[in-house]
């Protein structure tokens, strides 16, 4: 006997989500590690049979990343340079095995402060699409991620897609991850950046830091300071006062808070250099 539901359509999934408390499941790369049992305890709503939640596609309003898109699919997707950071992050999520199973939607719903996908999606102004039998709504990612392991998803809602608006697809993205070993590592800190450069000057900068606050955070003060700056000076403009106010790092088994604060500044510099158009970085 089991409480394991694997619907084939979104409508059916939404009805099941509305009918009673279920745990939505996709790649299961966070659900299984949370238990030592040989089977997932129900009721599980396994979404992986729903074809409509797959795929990464360009639409009129921007890019739509289906909730079930795996990190491997993100890494291999044909996407403009603004997504280079996201694609790099996709290759850093856990291991190849995890990337083949874990999904973008699951990563966001799990809401780990160290989720590798989040900083990049923040710099891409991503919105999440939430569906329920009551209807569909969209939330900016910062409004969706309300705290460590906390989201704005209602119990009867399912995250169906991540949408990157067309305007955010401009420029060059980059991602830098810091961990104590090469593979399969939870980040000490990571930074995503996206720069739009015109005529040698930064037209727009989007920078986000992960694992240095309860939820990954954009750096508005730094972004404002970078706007209009000569692209070649991007890294030089990064000073601690423009980074620290947005962060609240903690000490844990991976690093202490002071180091995280300092490393975040350095990582921001490196991410900005990588996000420069090639000739500017030289």
């Amino acid at each position: 006997m089991t409480d394991y539901l694997r619907p084939r359509t979104l409508d059916e999934a939404l009805r099941l989500a509305a009918a009673g408390r279920v745990v939505p499941a996709a790649g299961c790369t966070d659900l299984f590690p949370a238990t030592q049992a040989p089977a997932l305890a129900g009721p599980i709503l396994d979404l992986t049979g729903i074809e409509a939640l797959r795929g990464i596609a360009r639409g009129p309003g921007g890019w739509r990343i289906g909730a079930l898109a795996t990190w491997t699919e993100v890494a291999r997707a044909a996407l403009p340079p603004a997504f280079d950071g996201l694609r790099a992050a996709a290759r850093e999520v856990g291991s190849v095995q995890i990337q083949n199973a874990g999904t973008v939607g699951g990563n966001l719903c799990n809401a780990s402060p160290a989720a590798d996908g989040v900083p990049c999606l923040l710099t891409l102004e991503a919105e999440v699409e939430l569906a329920s039998v009551r209807g569909t709504r969209r939330l900016p990612l910062p409004a969706f991620l309300t705290g460590p392991r906390q989201t704005a998803r209602a119990a009867d809602e399912l995250l169906t897609a991540v949408v990157v608006p067309a305007a955010a697809g401009a420029g060059q993205g980059a991602f830098v991850k810091l961990g104590a070993r090469r593979y399969l590592v939870i980040s000490i800190a990571m930074v995503a950046a996206r720069l739009e450069v015109a005529d040698g000057r930064i037209a727009r900068a989007a920078v986000a830091v992960g694992a240095c606050s309860a939820v990954a955070a954009r750096l508005p003060a730094l972004e404002a300071a970078l706007a209009g700056a000569p692209a070649g000076e991007a890294a030089d403009r990064v000073v601690p006062d423009l980074v620290a106010p947005a962060l609240a790092p903690i000490s844990d088994v991976r690093a202490d808070a002071a180091y995280r604060a300092e490393a975040a500044v350095e990582l921001v510099r490196r991410a900005l250099v990588r996000a420069l158009p090639r000739q500017e970085a030289a």
Partner: peptide, 27 residues
């Protein structure tokens, strides 16, 4: 490890490596 941390249970599903410990039978 039953947590995807060690990869000892790696199998190929439709050719792609996955941790069998993180894969529900249904999938």
């Amino acid at each position: 490890c039953d947590a995807g941390d060690c990869g000892a249970c790696t199998v190929l599903i439709d050719g792609a490596p996955r941790c069998a410990c993180l894969t529900p039978l249904a999938q």
